[in-house]
Design a protein around this nucleic acid. Structure first.
Lengths: 157, 157
DNA sequence: AGCTAAATCGAGAATGATTCCTGATTTAGG
DNA sequence: CCTAAATCAGGAATCATTCTCGATTTAGCT
């Protein structure tokens, strides 16, 4: 059976690629489309809980009974290199992954460790000041607030 | 020989203790003063490179030839629990440690991974807004700027 | 100064997250 | 269809971190 050719849907602007993922400019690496990677990205985009690789593995096992944890890590790396997905190092040391393409910041609960998305704008004056005072050109900012989330705060008091 | 009693120099305000380090309020844990821990803290305070446990281990081997890596981790945990030292999860996943007691923020170089201290004030309006919009009470904020440090920026261009 | 209990140590084993290796399978592109 | 490159699953290897245990050191007492 002949498969109708569907257009290549790039995951993200390749200019967003991270430095350590650089590939030779003359012969760019060819990427095969795989169901595993597509579903992984969908799963990441459909949540805001910043899952770990193990979480994603668990979530996909039903769909792919033979899925391997290595496959999850390998594909996460691809998505991170593309700039489609962001790595969020957590206080516990376990890496978390963020499929929210919008620039945004986080609130981290000290008690339960949950990471919650915020959309608070950082005054652009901050980066200007940074550039003037330190001669540092920052192209991204990450803000993490720490404290107790509503649930944990209620439980404690 | 009689040792002149020297006053207990607490490393930090115990109220800064982290939740997961809680000890029974009725019988607080006794702490022995050890040279290893004192030197570890000194080393952390004398640098702003945010060393890893392995870095600190290497730095102290000359002084304590029998030092064990486990001892470094154990003491880092004590200092973190006291609130004297802060854990800084890094993009690579390896934990880094910060002995700077002042609240401050960081610039992380994408190329070399170095973490540099900044003293930029975050407008307090941000936390107020956070509280109003999300009902979240944040008691700490961490801001990380990402980009190329001066050295790496010069090398690339 | 000596005594005891608790704290800490060093060495190494155990754990847990992540990466790497290998041979089999799948995809893209003629 | 054919081929080369990419990706897969499974499992071994690596690396950071934690745990265990017997030996040593400290604090606080007498």
């Amino acid at each position: 059976m002949r498969r109708v050719s569907s257009p290549r849907i790039p995951h993200a602007d390749p200019s967003a690629q991270r430095a350590e993922c650089a590939e030779p400019a003359d012969r760019p690496r060819r990427r095969n489309r795989t169901v595993q990677r597509e579903r992984l990205l969908e799963m990441l985009r459909s949540t805001d809980t910043h899952p770990t690789a193990a979480d994603l593995f668990e979530g996909l096992r039903g769909e792919f009974p033979r899925l391997s944890l290595g496959t999850v890590y390998r594909n996460l790396e691809v998505l991170v290199c593309e700039g489609t997905v962001e790595q969020v190092p957590s206080q516990s040391g376990v890496m978390r992954y963020d499929g929210n393409p919008q620039p945004h910041h986080h609130f981290v609960c000290d008690a339960c460790g949950d990471i919650r998305d915020l959309d608070i704008q950082l005054p652009s004056a901050l980066t200007t000041r940074l550039q003037r005072r330190y001669k540092l050109r920052a192209d991204r900012v990450r803000v993490d607030f720490f404290g107790l989330c509503e649930t944990c705060s209620d439980r404690d008091s």
